[in-house]
């Protein structure tokens, strides 16, 4: 690693100010993506702004129709949360499938969503549930947040503080793990709301995306059989040594069916 300065602000505005005032500074939450990048010398920020002293970013709260998860809440806490297990079990299940136990101890929902890795799990849950990303400046709907490969709507100095999830009628997540990395080769999150169904896919393409034909079919009949014949186009899907694009496309249908099964179980 190349040397950098380290800041641990205890107020969100201070953190935002550090990020905008120090050139080439970077935010660090759990560090599960950033630290490996620094180790490999693929990035060399001049300063890190660590969010761990911002106590207000941790924790899970709910009201009648939503659950709000603080940005610095680790995956293990989400996975073990009785509240989330009860109200959105598919989201707890998703959190329990990220990385491995040590990754789940440190990795945070805010870090994962802000990073928008094309094979990360949380973007599928956030987009699939139509969540709202709450930042230091504003609220952003999931549909407007994820802009493709590692790109999001976040502006310089804008910090995710929490994510607010509407409580669905049912939801499920199915993940086909890349055998070596344990990231999603294909992960599909399916959520049924009173007014319709959302289907979000991670791992298959350059960023998380929705599948309108599946959403329409499942809105009519929320059952795996409704989407069994729906195939997605291979254009733009990722192709690598683990999975070619047509296989990924096939897996989207299989995982979507399994996500519906999980939601129904």
């Amino acid at each position: 690693m190349k040397p950098f300065a380290y800041h641990q602000p205890d107020q969100i505005p201070d953190a935002a100010k550090l990020l905008t005032s120090i050139e080439d500074s970077k935010l660090v939450a759990g560090g599960m993506t950033l630290i490996p990048t620094l180790k490999q010398r693929l990035a060399s920020p001049t300063a890190l702004v660590d969010l761990s002293k911002l106590g207000s970013l941790k924790g899970i709260t709910d009201d009648a129709a939503t659950i709000t998860i603080g940005a610095m809440t680790p995956h293990a806490v989400v996975a073990a949360s009785k509240l989330i297990q009860t109200k959105i079990p598919g989201l707890a299940a998703l959190a329990s499938m990220i990385g491995d136990p040590a990754v789940r101890s440190r990795g945070t929902i805010g870090g994962s969503v802000a990073n928008n890795d094309p094979a990360a799990d949380y973007p599928a849950g956030v987009l699939g549930l139509g969540a709202t990303i709450i930042t230091s400046k504003r609220e952003i709907a999931a549909d407007k947040f994820f802009l493709g490969l590692f790109e999001t709507a976040l502006e310089l100095g804008e910090i995710i503080t929490a994510i607010r999830f509407p409580v669905p009628v049912k939801a499920g997540y199915a993940k086909f793990k890349a055998p070596a990395s344990r990231y999603a080769l294909v992960g599909v999150f399916v959520a049924k709301f009173p007014d319709g169904v959302r289907v979000a896919v991670t791992g298959a393409g350059p960023g998380v995306f929705r599948v309108p034909p599946m959403e329409a079919a499942l809105s009519g009949h929320f059952d795996p059989s409704a989407i069994a014949a729906i195939k997605i186009d291979t254009d733009g899907l990722a192709s690598d040594i683990h999975a070619e694009a047509d296989y990924r496309a096939h897996l989207v249908t299989v995982m979507a069916k399994r996500a519906v099964e999980a939601a129904l179980s």
């Binding site: 560090g31 180790k39 660590d50 293990a76 491995d100 040590a102 990754v103 101890s105 070596a180």
Partner: peptide
Amino acid sequence: CDTSQCGACVVHLNGLPVKSCTLLAPALD
């Protein structure tokens, strides 16, 4: 390893298992 995959470096931070190869020293304070 150098990709936070192997787990040979796991320690307990505040009672939880973490990979010490993917943890910066300031986090210990």
